[in-house]
């Protein structure tokens, strides 16, 4: 199904990516081409087939439900664009 400009604007917001208004038409055409191409999967009969959610056919070990790491807030925050008193900062969210 071709994607129109409104749909692209909507998914761009869902993905939190700002797309300049002037690029929407071109992007809609490009994405429609890709979606149209993947839609050939509709011709495959998948009746009774379970979706593949695990790649390797094995059981992986489980770890204990315990805290095994942490205690270095400074390292965690080291790459943040803005921090204040050991916290990340974001624009004001409550008026």
């Amino acid at each position: 199904m071709p994607l129109d400009k409104t749909t692209v604007r909507k998914i761009a917001f869902l993905a939190r990516i700002k797309v300049p208004e002037g690029e929407l038409d071109h992007l809609a055409a490009e994405l429609s081409q890709i979606i149209g191409w993947v839609e050939q999967l509709a011709e495959v009969d998948t009746g009774g087939i379970a979706p593949m959610t695990v790649v390797a056919d094995m059981t992986w070990p489980r770890r204990n439900d315990a805290v095994t790491d942490g205690g270095y807030a400074g390292k965690v925050l080291a790459n943040a664009p803005e921090t204040e008193e050991g916290f990340y900062t974001v624009p004001k969210v409550v008026e």
């Binding site: 994607l3 749909t7 692209v8 998914i11 761009a12 869902l14 993905a15 990516i17 992007l27 490009e30 994405l31 890709i34 979606i35 993947v38 999967l41 509709a42 495959v44 998948t46 087939i49 379970a50 979706p51 593949m52 959610t53």
Partner: peptide
């Protein structure tokens, strides 16, 4: 492009037709 395609195929109403279908063909 890829993040938008991914967002679209996982979005409500399209998940079964695209993502779930692809996982079945993957099997």
């Amino acid at each position: 492009r890829r993040v938008l395609i991914g967002t679209y195929v996982l979005s409500a109403g399209y998940y079964d037709a695209y993502y779930l279908k692809a996982q079945k063909v993957r099997r």
